[in-house]
């Protein structure tokens, strides 16, 4: 059993939890994820490991309430036990001293961007972070990221805070300004990652994306998470979750993510965990 040690709410629908998982805390690296089950009848859902504290023996996750499982997770309080936590899973982010790097996080993807920024800094890179949200109220982790990156640019779609516009526009400007960018990391909604890759493609800037397909076992056993990368089928759980974005078939990912929308809706409606 893995206890929820700490819980905080980052926005109306986004939560942060520190979970007791000492062995995962020791082993995990940036880019890896854990599978979580809230209860025995629950789903197995993959969540990025945002941070860890080896001394406390905890790992941090950040999640947005989107379906039944995340609703139930959000309803759990400090001291409660999760039914299962498995990790670390997936390949860690390929890490070296690249030079100047840009990490773009959109929405709840900012949580996934955080450990990559941290690891890039630890590896001696200059990190420019671009984080964006639809509106100011749902922007997360601004202070945390400001503390660890070299430069932070915030955008909101509605202009309620920071730069009015999309992260793609900011990245375009940054490239236009002549900043020598060695590598871009993009994590967020699939359309955002797709468009960001189109921004960097003409400039030949390697762009790493972190994919979030549906998973079941998340250990390479089932193939639910298959994605097409450079025309080859890969399993995001063991070959990824990070891939070269210029090779990813994002449309396939979008269509596979919709596979259970009816069932997801049914489960959400039947959810009783908040009562």
């Amino acid at each position: 059993m893995n206890k929820i040690v700490k819980k905080s709410q980052l926005s109306e629908t986004v939560f942060r939890m520190a979970i007791a998982a000492p062995e995962i805390a020791v082993k995990r690296k940036a880019g890896q994820f854990a599978v979580i089950m809230t209860e025995e009848k629950g789903e197995r859902i993959p969540l990025t490991i945002v941070d860890s504290d080896k001394n406390e023996g905890t790992v941090t996750i950040i999640f947005q309430v989107v379906g039944k499982t995340t609703m139930c997770l959000a309803a759990m309080e400090e001291g409660a036990d999760l039914f299962a936590v498995l990790g670390p899973l997936g390949e860690p982010t390929e890490m070296e001293q690249f030079g100047t790097t840009v990490v773009v996080g959109g929405g709840v993807g900012i949580g996934v961007a955080y450990p990559i920024i941290k690891a890039l800094k630890d590896a001696g890179n200059k990190v420019i972070a671009i984080i964006g949200a639809r509106t100011k109220g749902i922007l997360i982790l601004e202070e945390d990221i400001k503390r660890i990156c070299d430069r932070l640019i915030v955008t909101t779609d509605d202009g309620s805070y920071g730069v009015h516009g999309f992260v793609t526009d900011v990245l375009k400007d940054l490239i236009g300004s002549g900043e020598p960018i060695a590598r871009v990391f993009a994590i967020g909604p699939v359309p955002m990652m797709k468009f960001l890759c189109e921004v960097t493609r003409p400039h030949n800037i390697k762009t790493i994306v972190s994919l979030n397909p549906i998973m079941v076992d998340a250990t390479g056993m089932c193939g639910a998470c298959r994605v097409s990368v450079g025309g080859e089928t890969k399993f995001a759980c063991v070959d990824g979750p990070e891939f070269d974005g210029h090779d990813v078939d994002f449309d396939l990912l979008i269509s596979r993510l919709r596979m259970y929308c009816n069932e997801e809706e049914e489960a959400r409606k039947g959810c009783r965990c908040h009562e």
């Binding site: 789903e43 499982t69 259970y260 039947g270």
Partner: peptide, 17 residues
């Protein structure tokens, strides 16, 4: 695995579709 381990055949009693 969906049907046997996750008991998806008993969805929505079990969450996995």
């Amino acid at each position: 695995t969906r049907s046997n381990l996750m008991k998806a055949y008993r969805f929505p009693e079990y969450d996995t579709p």
